[in-house]
């Protein structure tokens, strides 16, 4: 039952989505010479300046840096939320810098779970429905399986007793747990989290981080933006960004 429940029947790669034009990525995530410039009334602002990065399956990577250093921009590039001005990004065998907005949403729904500081749950849907939503859009699993899977994920996040509550009826930490469950809904290989503990107290932040560690242990790849040095030190790999460039990288044994 659980095997069926957690196998992805809709994650087959569509024609045209995974065209890599001769390049065969070795790593799960490959970022090559990525530049991101924003046009502002006072001139161009370079958020990322020729960033190169690769992440392998099962890694837990922290991206740290000061405000405005470009760390969120980097995660937006990898999740396909934003697109690079120049450079190439390959994620799970997909050249996502070439994807259009529609195929990108479809690809993201199945391959990357995204977690934000402000949770981004839809306020009119219950916690359970928020978790079911990605499966619905991605046409993953049967309707009955969607509910069972969402309840199972909420149970994993210790939120099953709040499944039928609205997001506004639970605490910030609980909302973040629901957001993590939602990110896992379509069983994506990658989780990208942008300051996931930024809006939580230290105890709750610690609990969320422990969840991430468990997910990595289950084989997920996690990329987490944080400016919490303490949390960054708990990951195996920490990348420091300053002025749009990777300036330091620490790998712990």
């Amino acid at each position: 039952m659980l095997k069926t429940l957690f196998s992805r029947n809709g994650a087959t790669t569509k024609k045209g989505i995974s065209v890599i034009n001769g390049h065969t990525p070795i790593h799960l995530i490959e970022v090559r010479q990525v530049v991101k410039a924003y046009h502002t009334p006072v001139g161009d602002f370079i958020a990322l300046n020729g960033v190169n990065l690769h992440i392998d399956k099962g890694e837990f990577v922290a991206v740290v840096g000061k405000s405005g250093s470009g760390k969120s921009t980097l995660i937006n590039m990898i999740t396909g939320i934003d697109r690079p001005t120049a450079g190439e990004i390959y994620v799970a065998n997909h050249a996502i810098h070439r994807l259009g907005e529609g195929p990108m949403a479809e690809w993201r729904g199945k391959n990357v779970g995204v977690i934000f500081q402000f949770f981004q749950l839809l306020p009119m849907l219950s916690c359970l429905e928020n978790v079911m939503l990605p499966m619905d859009f991605g046409n993953m699993y049967t309707p009955r399986e969607r509910k069972e899977r969402a309840l199972h994920l909420l149970e994993q996040m210790q939120m099953v007793e709040h499944a039928y509550k609205l997001p506004s009826e639970v605490s910030g930490g609980q909302q973040q747990r629901v957001a993590i469950a939602r990110a896992l809904a379509n069983d994506p290989p990658i989780l990208a989290a942008d300051e996931p503990t930024g809006n939580l107290d230290s105890k709750t932040a610690d609990a969320v981080f422990t969840l991430f560690e468990n997910l990595v242990a289950q084989g997920k790849t996690i990329l987490m933006v944080t400016h919490d040095g303490e949390l960054a030190r708990r990951t195996r790999r920490a990348i420091t960004i300053a002025d749009g460039q990777i300036v330091d990288e620490k790998i712990r044994g």
Partner: peptide, 12 residues
């Protein structure tokens, strides 16, 4: 934005 984030397509 949130729906696109979790995989909603334009036509949906």
């Amino acid at each position: 934005g949130v729906m696109k984030l979790v995989g909603a397509r334009r036509r949906q």
